[in-house]
Amino acid sequence: MRKLLSVGFIGVYLGALGLGLVSHMLGAWNTAHPVMYYIVWDMFCGWSAYDSRIHVIAEGESQTYYRLTPTPWGELHPYGSLGREHYDVFNNHAGQIGLNVLRHTQHEPISRIFVIEEAWAKKYNLQQPVWESRYDDPKDKLSYFRVRAIMLPDSQVTERYDSWMAHQAGRMFADNPRLQADSKLNQPVFVRETPRQPVGRPFGSQSHLRFLGTSSPSAN
């Protein structure tokens, strides 16, 4: 009986690992359920040329704006020197972090919460000696900002936008008069179609599609 159980466990365990491997190889079912995160080994899923940080800002009824992150009681730096909101690559949780800060602080009535992404070219991350050895120009870091979500204090999300990178990629893709003209053809006059846009290709407009990611938030 004991051996039978062992054989069963070995079979189920290796079967699960095999399923994860095949699923990952084929790119199918790997986002079907959170349990797939436990059997799909996608540790290196790519990195962009731009760094990104998240700011959570609250707007008071007096039109005063407050910073909700870093959290006022001190924040956890889970993998280095960044707060956890910066690992919210799919923009699903940063607003909740802001709401939690509101619950545990004293403040005027709040009307809206903004989740704002900051992005900059990663070359500006280089330490100064490394920079000087390769570049003749001085470091001139420029940050770009983009509102990713607007929430009400009751946690209702009123607006949600794609990432700065996806927005820029879509903007460049759409910078084509023929493409723009084609996209405006055959639009009905009274009924507005809301076609499902491919994820990550939002043509510079907001995308309400949920990103289904299996990649680790820190890709550790």
Binding site: M25, G46, W47, N125, S218
Partner: peptide
């Protein structure tokens, strides 16, 4: 093996570009 499959799926992994951007990333 799964990690190798991921790298095969990742465009520009073998040119070193992906690794280059990773080494310039400060989230860890």
């Amino acid at each position: 093996l799964g990690a190798a499959i991921t790298k095969m799926h990742t465009p520009s992994f073998f040119s070193g570009d992906q690794l280059m951007y990773w080494t310039m990333t400060y989230v860890n």
